[in-house]
Amino acid sequence: MDEKLLLDLKDLVVHYVTDSGTVYAVNGISLKLNQRHSVGLVGETGAGKTTTALAILNLVPEPAGVIKNGTIHVDGNNVLTMSEGELQKIRGKDVSMIFQDPMTALNPVFTVGEQIAESIRIHEKVSDKEAMRRAVEMLEIVGISASRANDYPHQLSGGMKQRVVIAIALACHAKLLIADEPTTALDVTIQAQVLELIRSYREKYDTAMILITHDLGIVAETCDEVAVMYAGNIVEYGTLEDVFNRTKHPYTEGLFNSLPNIIERRSKLTPIPGMVPDPTSLPEGCIFADRCSYATDACRRTAQEDKWLSDTHMVRCSRYQEPNFNVKRKIER
């Protein structure tokens, strides 16, 4: 099947310049995504995931945020060099974003039907009546009955609000959907509903997706590929098989080990020792070395590079220059 390359993000570097120093939010990452595929962008707070997502829409907040380097091609066009007018055309239409907190993403003074209709009207030349008709259609697709189109956000529950946010994001049948922690604020049974909804929608419309989350479980259920981010770098990247069953990077291993697991009941969890580094003063060598149980002196001194272990699997760890090195995690099938 000839799959189009939808997103080609190369060497992205984003800094935030603040009073207390420059925050090195994203430090040279590259990402490719084909139509119909989905990649999970995994990492903890401060890893740079949301900044990356905002960069794709060229929405990095201006006074503080500076895109120092990189190109982001969406469907062949470099988003970072587009004019504001051109950007407005693709935002919401070709590339759509679902933000994390549904409480604040909706405008409290407009009905939910109105808000969905508005995003349709912005991008397509349709009459108000037609836009509203499609808005109601979207509501039903996300599992909300048409009778609620005239309700205001505060009349809906958290789960329903998030589904409205999704409806707005999907209304124009975007080619690329960026979902930033779309289910973090939701109950687990509602989360299951929402993820199922996104999955079936994507199947129907061939939508590609970047799913930002800290939850490896969600990645396992919804994504084809995984990119693990730490302190502004992608430290491991690959297919689900690669990253889950043939884990390479010590941080990824640490993440798996610190997760409570409902398959095996261990009485003690193994957290990753130490803390995320200060983003205003990142070390020279490997940024994870301080917390890594495999770190050597060379690790702390050497600037890290991407190493491709196969066509699909990349790891950013200088210890893999050694012929027989591997992290301990082994998954028996």
Binding site: A192, V219, N245, F256, I263
Partner: peptide, 23 residues
């Protein structure tokens, strides 16, 4: 509830029970 928990293990296939409606 148990079936809704996403598990970070790709080697297990689970049947998920999706509940209807809202809490």
């Amino acid at each position: 509830l148990l079936s809704a928990i996403p598990v970070p293990d790709i080697n297990r296939k689970r049947k998920r029970i999706i509940l209807e409606g809202e809490v």
